[in-house]
Design a protein around this nucleic acid. Sequence first.
DNA 1: GTTCCTGCAAAAGCTTTGCAGAAGA
DNA 2: TCTTCTGCAAAGCTTTTGCAGGAAC
Lengths: 153, 153
Amino acid sequence: MSTEKKCTLPTLEQLKKTLQERNINLSHQRLKVLEYLTSHNTHPSTEEIYEALHQEITTLSKSTVYNTLKVLVEAGVVRELMIENNEARYDIITDFHGHFKCERCGDIHNFSIRLDDLAYKGLGSYLIKQRDVYFKGVCPDCLENKTISQEDL
Amino acid sequence: MSTEKKCTLPTLEQLKKTLQERNINLSHQRLKVLEYLTSHNTHPSTEEIYEALHQEITTLSKSTVYNTLKVLVEAGVVRELMIENNEARYDIITDFHGHFKCERCGDIHNFSIRLDDLAYKGLGSYLIKQRDVYFKGVCPDCLENKTISQEDL
DNA sequence: GTTCCTGCAAAAGCTTTGCAGAAGA
DNA sequence: TCTTCTGCAAAGCTTTTGCAGGAAC
C-alpha cells in the first residue's frame, strides 16, 4: 500500500454532488458551513466556524454547527482533526496528509507524508481505517519572529 | 534524521533516578502513579489510574492524579496521547512509536514506525518538537471474534 | 519556618442530548 | 402530510483553578 496522493481542495460543486449522491439534504446552514470550509482552508474549530457564520446568519445556533460538522464527517467529505485535546478542528481536504501545529501561533499546516508498508511493522493483521499524523513545534514564521528560546531546544 | 528506536519499558528505578535529577519530589502519590504506569502498559486514562489507585489510597483525589500526570509529562518521563478527543491517555514508553486504537475494544496497541526525512516534505524550516502517529481501526482479536461487517470496509 | 504537595469544591470549556417548532419534499 | 432539520436550553464530561490544610526538608 502506497499512500502518496495529491492533496486537492475540492470545489463546492464537487462536494454538493457527493452529498446529494448520499441523500444528504443541502440546507442553507449546511451549505454555508461547506462554503466556509472550502474558502478557509485553515482547519477551523467549531467555534471559529460558528462565529464567522453567526455574523450573517444571526439565528444560527452552535448545535447546528455541531450537527452539520458531524453529518459532513460521517459523509466522508470533511476530516475531523484531534490534534488538540480540547478542541476539534475540521479539514475539507480528506486525502491523506500530515498536520503540523505551531505551538506559538496555533496555526495548523499541511504537509505531505508517505507511509509505505515497510515503514510500519506489526500491523499485518490489523484492519486500518484511519491514519493521523500530527507533528507539533514552531513554524518558520514564528521562528523568524523570535530568537529561539532555551525551552524550544 | 532516522527515528527507528527500540521501545523499552523503563524500570521504576530508572524513572525515580530521572525524576530526582530533575528535582521532582517523589511523593507517595507520585510513586504510585509511576508504579501503575510501569506495571500497566495499556495506555490508561486519568480515570483508570484514579480508580485503580483509589482502591488502596482511599483519600486520593482526582486532582492529584491530574497534577501528577502533568508533572510527569513535563518532566519527560510520560507521554500524553490525544488519540481520543474526550480523554487523555498516558504512556510510560517515551521512545517514538505509533499507536493503534481499536474502535471495538478500545485497546491501544503500540507499533514501530519509521519516518525518514524523505518520507515527509515541506517541513524543512520547521522546528519539530513532537510527532504523533495515530492509527484507528479494528485489532486482530476483534476481527476474529466477529464477521467483518459492511461498515468496516 | 518555608516551600511544595494534596485534596475538596467549584468553575470552565467543549460536546451531546431532548424537545418543540420550522422548513422542506 | 410526513420527514428532516434547526435552535434553544440543559446536561454530561474531562480538565483546570482556588484555596486551605498538611507534609516534607
